[in-house]
Structures are given as structure tokens and as C-alpha cells.
Amino acid sequence: MSQLLVSVVSNERVLPSTYALTLDVGAAARDAVPGQVLLLRCGRSTDPFLRRPMGVGKTEGDTIEIMVQRAGAGSEWLIRLRPGDEIDCVGPVGRGFTLDASTQNLLLLGRGYGIGPLLGVAEKAVAQQKSVTLAVQAATADEVLPPRLLHPLIDYLVATDDGSVGYHGSIMDRVGELLPWADGICGSGPLLLMSGLASAIAARIPKKRAQIMIERRIACTSGVCFSCVVDTRRGLRRTCVDGPVFDSAAILWTERAA
């Protein structure tokens, strides 16, 4: 963990309101794990005030890709960055997704910009000759990440809310069928989708676990301030040092913010 001035390599629109931002972070990229977070300062003023936590996605050489969805003042600033621009970055912090050597069949579930970290896991898994299925939910065909952004060896399973592409309805119907196949499961996306994944696992394959990435506003980044906690069976755990990737069976999904 360190604070660095990093430079923008590219900033490409990949979905109508989502951008893939590639940063040259130097040697820090080599130890970065998908699912860890970078905390980016968005501008020089006090608005927006806090750094924005962005999940580490694909890594290559000295670069890390993050996915940024337009949502407010911070992301508005980030999506306007151009190649060569510099940005103040703290990180990577936290615990990312782990890939067990024993895992052969990896199932990934995500939606929206949450897919960014999953792409990072997918590429590492493919490089280790694991079978990878990426299941995504999107509102419409427009919101489906183009297959060209995925490694060709990744099985890509899509469901849309309106049926404009892929399965019509919930991706969970397809994911349920794949659960017995999978011996490694990772999720990153809206809480409703993630709690659905956790309960499907608990109901159908209670001995298995998913690794789920949780998004929180992060303040101190070193575990001191207890702002970014997630409610778990082991108490309130800090996203910045204990997470942001947690065991699906450990997370208590009842809390309003969890």
C-alpha cells in the first residue's frame, strides 16, 4: 500500500455509462490482485471530498484496469481523464479474490462495473488453464459488455431484464444450474444479485462458498477509522483491510447497507 501519482494509459467507453480506465501504476501493479481497491482522488478541490474506491480489474505489466460507472461528481471527473493525465492514487489496499490451485471450474457472476474485477480474475484463471464461465445480468443489450473485451476462452453467459439479448430474465436461473459444476465462485455487483448468489449457494451446495466483493465508502484506508464496515458472522469487518472480498457465508445480508 502506498500513495502514488499514476498516469492514465487509456480511458475507453465500454458501456453507455461505463468506462474502462487503464492506469500505469508502476511496480505496484505486479502485486495487485483483482478485487483489491485503488483509492483515487478525483480532482484537487474539496468537492468531491473523499477518494473513490475502485476495484482492481485486469492487470498487465505495470498497468491496472478499473471500471468506472458515471454516478456522481467523482466518477464524472474520472471518466473525463485522458491518456497522459496524472492522478493521485492510494493502494492497492485490502484482500482481493484468491484463486485456489485446486480450482478447475471457476464461475463468475456480476453486473455493471462490478464485472471489472471479475475480468481480472478470469484472465488469471485462463492463464492457469482453468475453465471459466462469466455470467452477467444486464438491463438491456446496450448494457452488455462486448465479448471482444473478454478473453476468447471465457464462457460468456448473458441474461437481460428485457430479453433483448441472451436469456430473458434472471441470470440466477442459469447460475443455479452451474453451481454443482463450479469449484470456485466469485461475485461482484449489486447487493441484491450478490445476496441472491449467497442464498442459492446456501440452498443448493451448502458446502461451497463464493468470494463476494463488497463496495463501501472508504475513508482512512488503513483500518483505523471503522467507516467501511460490513456486517459478518465474525462481527463488523473493515472493507479496507479485512475485505473488500468476503466469504458469502460470512456476510450477514440483513443490514440495510450490507
Partner: peptide, 12 residues
């Protein structure tokens, strides 16, 4: 319970 932090103008 969370959320435990929100931004305000020039602060939290």
C-alpha cells in the same frame, strides 16, 4: 449500522 460515512460540502 452502516452507512457510517457520507460526504458533505467540504467534509464528511
Amino acid at each position: 449500522p452502516g452507512p457510517r460515512v457520507v460526504e458533505t460540502p467540504s467534509g464528511i
